[in-house]
């Protein structure tokens, strides 16, 4: 792990998904989820693509929180912004413009 994380194992964050893309809307009952708080963009993409969610297979997604792209884990995002784990995060997902092979570098 990243070493400086003091978060308890199994920590979760509540997220609400939303998207501007008309063809990728989720039904309301699937928009709110509890996710492991050490999750990053790749894990979130996998969740959205999964059979229980959008069933889209392997579309790489990018996630916007408060207008900027998520480039860290949710844990680190919370820490960097001084937010407690009690916070509900609003995640806006969009099709990633970065080719999937780029994934390995972050």
């Amino acid at each position: 792990m990243d070493g400086h994380s003091t978060t308890e194992p199994n920590a979760q964050v509540k997220v609400i998904f939303d998207t501007p893309e008309a063809d990728l809307q989720l039904p309301e009952s699937k928009r709110t989820l509890l996710v492991p708080s050490d999750i990053r963009r790749y894990g979130l993409s996998r969740i959205l693509n999964s059979e229980s969610m959008l069933e889209t297979g392997a579309i790489p997604f990018d996630f916007l929180i408060d207008g900027s792209f998520l480039r860290t884990s949710l844990d680190d995002y919370l820490k960097a912004n001084g937010l407690p784990h009690e916070t509900t995060l609003h995640l806006q997902y969009v099709r990633s413009l970065i080719p999937p092979t780029y994934e390995a570098s972050f």
Binding site: P27, K30, L33
Partner: peptide, 24 residues
Amino acid sequence: GSSVLDLKEVEFVKGRDGESTVKL
């Protein structure tokens, strides 16, 4: 849509092949 009745949590379950799958 944000009622606790609908709320699900995500688990990444490791299969026998070492691959993890998303479970709600």
